[in-house]
Design a protein around this nucleic acid. Structure first.
Length: 872
RNA sequence: GCGGACGUGGUGGAACUGGUAGACACACAGGACUUAAAAUCCUGAGACUUAACCGUCGUGCGGGUUCGAGUCCCGCCGUCCGCACCA
């Protein structure tokens, strides 16, 4: 008996070499097996992998390996989201080229990932900063431009004063830049945009087809796109009060039913009518100016109090020519949503009500909530935003708001103002076009040349790629491309006059919007190889963090459609990711020194249990405060280095722990005892297999005709495990699969000390099943065990064993027996026993008879194979 | 403010369409082996009551539906997440 401990790190190296030499994980684009494309979100090469990566990639790998065992041709690639700001910042700090920094990080992280034993096809690896990748992205950009899906416009943009770049709305969090954390300013710049709004409706509608996406993500995208159904209504302005150039005001509303509760109109400070009116009104001009200044940061906007200014302009109510309403400029009206103008019904909208109360404007209730009396009902300081019955609304009285909406919409659509319908139904979206220009060096250059005569000219295909210059200087803030004369100044491709290159580069979210497609044929001469894409897409299982629920996933869904519609991708598909899984974070306890500094877990020592746990600094012995459990982060130093874990415990142990206990979508707490337990299990499996290998029959031995009870039970439990582990992995419930394997290991372990007819055969059968069950999760250990069981094949090449259906059902089962709904006893009976037979057996139980105490049961409910409930 | 998710032992968590709550693991306690420790193996354990069996209570709180509720419905409380003047 080999009683040596299993030396995981050493053996793992060996098996990885064997796999690599066997070319085990290379995916073939031409294969008759059904395909399965498994993808985890590719990492940003920040320096070293962290535990979040370990968790993410462990999950994907289990799925990929399992699918391969199930007979699928699996594509499981890896690459690098390699453009972006940190490289440029590092270049500034350390005087290295961003590319040098990035490639060094990639080398480190690749070797780290390789030591995890992931079944990745490294032959398809690429980084988005490779010219071979981004040249195709430039082609895609030009195709989008040709299709009208990429365009330039001047717009007010979010400007990050620290990073000196423009940010998308999605990259502004609480008014601050998502990377720099600096207060974002508003600036007017000409920028490149992708027309994502052309797909607003489709992007929200098709979420319904994404049945294997988390509801949470679909809901977040729905809210982000923000579809609303309403009306455009045109209000005539009273001539005497309006600026000469303005005769009407168009508002967008979702509540035309509340028109009779209208109290005033409000327009944004940037609205053309406001600007026109301000020309002859210095006070108004000053007010608008103040609004703009106050509104420079989104954070201030959120807390800003409502302010207004009566322009003196009067508008005619569309349903009553004699009814004039004042037009106010209000700071809470947004120029870039709807028409930048609203009509206010204070009784039905809290914001309008707040405003009306402040400036003493009329408040007329028009919706009477259920249970209120029309005679006494009054609005105080809470608007009625729910349903009810229309009141004070003339011909709408008595109907529901929904009916009133229809009535008003129909009527206003039929009426005419200056030759146009007064109202029309309109669907609005919160989603805005995606600004992709970034004033940075380390990104994909936008392939355009600006000519004073010809305007922006696309770089001709033959001149692609536009390659980043290597000799840029990073010693000051701002865009190095903009101050690189030899790169920037070129001849216009159309007229040959001196012209300038576009110096903006693309948002890195463009890079990650199509990498999954490039993986299907990473060396193709065109961006996409149609055959490969046809074969592999969509991604069957995509796995990544919830933090990408909106940005990356929405952009990718858009870009996929844009590639289809611009002809680069010929497919009937509309969605790139068939199934999505968002895994939880890795968390850890935090530690603080007396001085308030965060401490690494490796710098402290913990003694005692539970509430008596006391931590001290290793070096000084100084007391340490044990803090809360939080997401692992550099700033709080509650980090565990994957390298340390892999070197000490091995990859299998780390993987197993990451998959145990916590449901994958929830956060997992990294604990010392957790990794220790996983390590214990690794050794236990090895000992157990070793023991079985000593005793069991030779590989390939035929099943004996007769199995003793114990042997038969063990075999049953093995096949049940096989079946349930498969189901758990299919549904990505790895923690459940782990528990099922633990349970089976306990049974197998117990059986080794027993005797039974055919047990030596059953032990081998069960041991092999155990090894194959753990293989997707602990692939190295499984190989070692497979070899120990006498095979010279690779378990990674073995098909997933088919569970024998006959073994999955028991002929005798145990069901609970309740009396008046309380469990009193249990009953073991033939699985197919008839109802009356079960009833008789249940009533015969002493415990049941005792409680009934001679009384006749009123009723007996028998659910075969489940339960008996005696009602007495 | 709006929208959503979640709440189960000391801890992480399990429980298929309502049908034996607490699988599995951690931590803990006792025992075996050992000079001792580590490692390993065995045993115990939701709470209360009891010598033990029995019994009672028990899935955040309060109601309800049902023969039967962790699971379904209504109302609260708490935690977390997303959006945030989107008309």
């Amino acid at each position: 008996m080999a009683s040596e401990r299993y030396n995981a790190p050493a053996r793992e190296k060996h098996w990885r070499k064997v796999w690599q030499q066997a070319g085990l994980h290379r995916a073939n684009n031409h294969d008759s097996r059904p395909k399965c494309y498994v993808l985890e979100m590719f990492p940003y090469p920040s320096g070293r992998i962290h535990m979040g990566h370990v968790r993410n990639y462990s999950m994907g790998d289990v799925f990929a390996r399992y699918k391969a065992a199930k007979g699928f041709n699996v594509l499981h690639p890896m690459g690098w989201d390699a453009f972006g700001m940190p490289a440029e910042n590092a270049a500034m700090e350390h005087k290295t080229h961003p590319g040098t920094w990035t490639l060094a990080n990639i080398a480190t992280m690749k070797s780290q990932l390789q030591s995890m034993g992931l079944s990745l096809d490294w032959s398809r690896e690429f980084a988005t900063c490779d010219v071979a990748y981004y040249r195709h992205q430039q082609k895609l950009f030009l195709d989008l431009y040709t299709k009208g899906l990429a365009y330039r416009k001047s717009s007010r943009v979010n400007w990050d004063p620290v990073d000196h770049t423009v940010l998308a709305n999605e990259q502004v969090i609480d008014g601050k830049g998502w990377r720099s954390g600096a207060e974002v300013e508003q600036r007017e710049l000409t920028q490149w945009f992708f027309k994502i709004t052309a797909y607003s409706d489709e992007l929200v509608e098709d979420l319904r087809t994404l049945e294997n996406w988390p509801d949470k993500v679909r809901l977040m995208q729905t809210n982000w796109i923000g579809r609303s159904e309403g009306m455009l209504i045109r209000w005539a302005l009273e001539k005497a009060t309006a600026p000469a150039s303005q005769s009407e005001l168009q508002v967008y509303t979702t509540r035309p039913d509340t028109l009779f509760g209208a109290s005033f109109l409000a327009i944004a400070p940037d609205h053309p009518l406001a600007i026109a009116a301000a020309k002859n009104n210095p006070d108004l001009a000053k007010f608008c100016d103040n609004c703009r200044r106050a509104g420079t940061t989104a954070a201030e906007l959120e807390t800003a109090e409502k302010h207004g200014f009566d322009t003196g302009i009067r508008a005619v109510h569309p349903l009553d020519k004699d009814w004039l309403l004042p037009v106010w400029v209000a700071n809470f009206v947004l120029m870039d949503y709807g028409t930048g103008a609203i009509f206010a019904c204070p009784s039905g909208d809290q914001r309008d009500l707040d405003f009306a109360r402040k400036y003493d404007l009329p408040v007329v209730p028009v919706v009477l909530p259920a249970g209120e009396d029309a005679a006494t009902f009054a609005i105080t300081n809470t608007a009625v935003e729910g349903g009810g019955t229309m009141i004070n609304s003339r011909f709408l009285d008595g109907s529901t708001p929904e009916q009133a909406f229809e009535t008003v919409a129909d009527q206003l659509s039929g009426e005419v103002l200056a030759g146009q319908p007064v109202g029309q139904r309109q669907i609005n979206y919160r989603l805005r076009d995606w600004g992709v220009s970034r004033q940075r060096y380390w990104g994909c250059p936008i392939p355009f040349i600006h000519c004073d005569d010809c305007g922006p000219v696309p770089v001709p295909d033959d001149d692609l790629p536009v390659v980043l210059p290597d000799d840029a200087e990073f010693d000051k803030p701002g865009n190095p491309l903009d101050r690189h004369p030899t790169w920037k100044n070129v001849a216009c491709p159309t007229c040959a006059k001196p012209a300038r290159r576009e110096t903006d580069t693309m948002d890195t979210f463009v890079d990650s919007s199509w990498y999954y497609a490039r993986f299907t044929a990473p060396d193709a001469a065109t961006p996409i190889d149609q055959d490969a894409a046809q074969y592999w897409l969509p991604v069957d299982q995509y796995i990544g963090g919830i933090e990408h629920a909106i940005l990356h996933l929405l952009y990718s869904r858009f870009f996929f459609r844009a590639m289809c519609d611009s002809g680069q991708l010929k497919t009937k598909l509309r969605e790139p990711f068939k199934a999505l899984f968002t895994q939880g974070m890795v968390t850890h306890e935090t530690y603080k020194s007396e001085g308030g500094a965060w401490l690494l877990p490796t710098d402290i020592k913990i003694e005692g249990e539970g509430k008596a746990r006391v931590a001290t600094e290793l070096k000084s012995g100084a007391p340490v405060t044990i803090g809360g459990i939080e997401k692992m982060s550099k700033s709080k130093k509650n980090l565990v280095d994957p390298d340390d874990i892999l070197e000490h415990w091995g990859a299998d142990c780390a993987r197993w722990f990451m998959l145990s206990d916590s449901p994958p979508e929830r956060d997992v707490i990294w604990t010392e005892s957790g990794i220790t337990a996983a390590g214990r299990f690794v050794q236990r499996v090895w000992r157990l297999i070793d023991e079985v290998a000593e005793r069991a029959v030779a590989p390939g031995t035929k099943q004996p005709d007769q199995l003793g009870e114990l042997a038969a039970d063990l075999r049953k439990s093995a096949h049940k495990t096989l079946d349930s582990v498969a189901t758990s992995i299919e549904s990505l419930r790895f923690n459940v699969a782990v528990a099922q394997i633990y349970e089976f290991t306990n049974s197998l372990s117990a059986a080794t000390s027993k005797q039974s007819q055919g047990l030596d055969w059953a032990l081998r059968d069960s041991a092999e099943i155990l090894v194959q069950s753990i293989a997707p999760m602990m692939p190295h250990l499984a190989e070692e065990c497979w070899a120990r069981l006498g095979y010279n094949t690779l378990v990674a090449n073995q098909p997933w064993p088919e569970a024998d259906p006959a073994l999955l059902v028991d002929d005798k089962i145990t069901i609970a027996v309740q009396v008046n709904g309380k469990r009193r006893d249990e009953l073991t009976i033939a699985r197919d026993a008839a109802k009356d037979e079960i009833e008789r057996a249940a009533l015969a139980l002493p415990s049941v008879a005792r409680i009934l105490d001679g009384r006749q049961p009123k009723k007996v409910i028998v659910v075969p194979q489940r339960i008996v409930n005696v009602v007495g």
